[in-house]
Amino acid sequence: MRATLLGVIFLLGRKLLVAVVQLYVVATLIFSIMYIMPGDPVLLLLGADSNPTPEAIAAMRHQLGLDQPVLAQYFDWLWNALHLDFGSSLTNGYPVAGYVAENLPRTLELALTAIVIAILVGVPLGIAAALKRGSARDTILTSLATVGISVPVYIAGTLMVLFFSIKLGWLPASGYTDVSRSLSLHLSKLVLPAATLGIGLAASIARMTRSSMLEILGRDFVRALRAKGMPEGQIIWQHVLRNAAIPIITIIGLQLGNLIGGTVLVEAVFNWPGLSTLLVTAVSARNYPLVQGAMLAIAAAFILINLVVELLYNILDPRIRRKRS
């Protein structure tokens, strides 16, 4: 194995190239889908209750460049995107990059906090259940996890708001405050949405941890280690957990990736101004450049997370590393 600097750079370069191609495919897919989708941004722009004249509609379409042939619009967009210009919102001209720059960090903050909560709760519970398989503890923990999975996140979130915000008045019910304005308010508004998301995720992490642990515990090498007289604690911590970690990390990676564009329900319940709300609003308004920009950001974040997960695989499972190099 020659892990030279050059090799690492080559590997990263290849991965980045793949990522760019992936992003290109995503962008093209979204572009084509949005343009054949029914609904017209111009009508929405011209007003909620007014009856726009055909001339006004045509003029607006021309001003926005929507009267160009689709292919021309596509190559235009692509050319600009290559220059890192992702256009601006059809409705108000604010740059798409600015939208993403404001919304992505908020989503990341919420998702990462939720994942940390989920790992801190889910992994220990899963291990605890697996180690006493079939016991009352296992049954209770497994059932709890199942209940956790089966409560819709917007119900859980609403109950949290009703209890912690409205009844007890401990925490704000909704919204987002900039750190620059007030750190304590910022954090207090993060608690409920992150906990709501985190608890749901913890349940599935706990389940995956349990089943993956059980799988490894049933392997021959564990029996061999036991036969050799290795202490049970050492077997668990050094061998079983390490091997069980791969599917656990897979599911955490998957969840984190899903969260980047998938926190829409929690964002709705807590009015958290994140990326998926932006995406929903943009699709609703047929704000094409914004949909593309938001989707590219989501895909890019997703691909990045995948890269990290893959790196973790390599560290955790020497066999994969050997096979690939």
Partner: peptide, 18 residues
């Protein structure tokens, strides 16, 4: 002027004083 597109969330925000 804070944007609250979800109606229930908007009501809860008023009730909790947000």
């Amino acid at each position: 002027y804070v944007f609250y597109p979800n109606a229930e969330t908007r009501v809860n925000a008023l009730k909790s004083g947000d």
